[in-house]
Simulated scan of single mutants.
Amino acid sequence: MASAVPVRGTAGTSRVAQRILGVDPGLTRCGFAVVEMHRDRTGESVHVEVTGTRSDQDLAERILVIQRAAEALLDTYAPDVLAIERVFAQNNAPTVVGTAQASGVVIAAAAARGIPVAWHTPSEVKAAVTDDGSADKAAVARMVQRILRLPALPKPVDATDAYAVAICHAWRSGIGTRHDMAAGTRTHQGARTALQRAADAGTSGMTPAQRAWQEAERRAGGGASGRVGPGSVRRGR
């Protein structure tokens, strides 16, 4: 684990590095990882922690614990952007609700500080880090260790996932990219997809598969905000 000495971020001013707060949301365990990512696709860990709450605690108190942890990290490390894993529906409804509640207070804490927020699906994260959208946890952990040059595999899994979300965002967005939470947002997930950006520029640069997906999104009412594959269902919390 990296030193927790307070370090101020570049707040979007650097064109060669980007400080990202990656979040793997959950009420029982919420993973936070602050990383500095560089143009050469390397990076380093600035800080990582997992904030936990107990199921026997009052719900309001649990939510407040997650909120305060997020606020402290945002104030201490001043990230350029907050990247958070997107919540997916699953059979365990209470787990989904808890994850959504944790996500909401973290997102609100970032928005209150003018820090932009980006959402990434589990399969997008796996694909960005390992080139395999259905990779297992061990494969993700090994690649996170290699990319960030960590002395050992990151633990627990919530820390690994938070690191992976941050790495995914850096590689998908591009280092030095300026982020705007409101500009051009067309989905409830907050971030425009590559397909949406391609549509704005015209369809000439899109592959046949991308055009087919865009047409499917149009028929469905434009509600999709990213690739959803077999690996996209979140694990239980």
Rank of each mutant, 00 (worst) to 15 (best):
G22V: 05
A83I: 07
Q18I: 13
T177H: 06
C30I: 10
G229R: 09
G9D: 04
A224F: 15
D131C: 14
G174T: 05
E44R: 11
V23L: 13
V105A: 01
T10H: 09
R54T: 11
V16A: 08
R41H: 11
A69K: 00
D136K: 03
T187H: 13
T13F: 13
R237K: 11
V105K: 00
I63H: 13
A224N: 09
T130F: 15
V96P: 03
G43I: 00
W171M: 08
G133K: 08
S225E: 03
G184W: 07
M181A: 15
R219S: 10
L150Y: 09
R54W: 08
L82I: 06
A224C: 08
E85P: 03
A139Y: 07
A17K: 10
K137W: 14
L27S: 01
T51G: 14
P208D: 15
R186S: 07
I20S: 07
T10M: 14
A212L: 15
A128T: 06
Q189W: 11
A108I: 11
H169E: 05
D131F: 12
M181Y: 10
T207S: 14
Q189M: 11
P208N: 12
C30S: 07
I107W: 01
S103T: 02
G202K: 08
G205Y: 10
E49R: 13
V144I: 09
P25V: 04
T207M: 10
Q18V: 12
Q101G: 08
D58C: 12
R186D: 02
R237Q: 11
R211N: 02
S204W: 10
L148S: 06
D161A: 05
R62Y: 04
T10W: 11
G43Y: 05
D75M: 08
Q145Y: 05
D161G: 06
V233A: 13
A139V: 05
L21H: 02
A109T: 00
D56E: 06
S225P: 10
M206S: 01
S173E: 04
Y77F: 13
A212P: 03
C168W: 02
Q145D: 09
E44P: 11
F88Q: 00
V81P: 00
M37T: 01
A109H: 01
R219P: 15
G22Y: 12
R146P: 07
L150D: 15
E36G: 01
V65W: 06
A191C: 11
R68G: 09
S55G: 07
I107V: 09
G133D: 02
E124Q: 06
V81K: 02
T185V: 15
R237F: 14
G229T: 12
R41I: 09
I147C: 13
R192V: 06
A70K: 00
V165H: 01
G52C: 09
Q145E: 08
T160F: 05
P116I: 00
D161W: 09
A128K: 10
C30G: 05
A128N: 13
W171I: 03
Y163F: 05
A33Q: 03
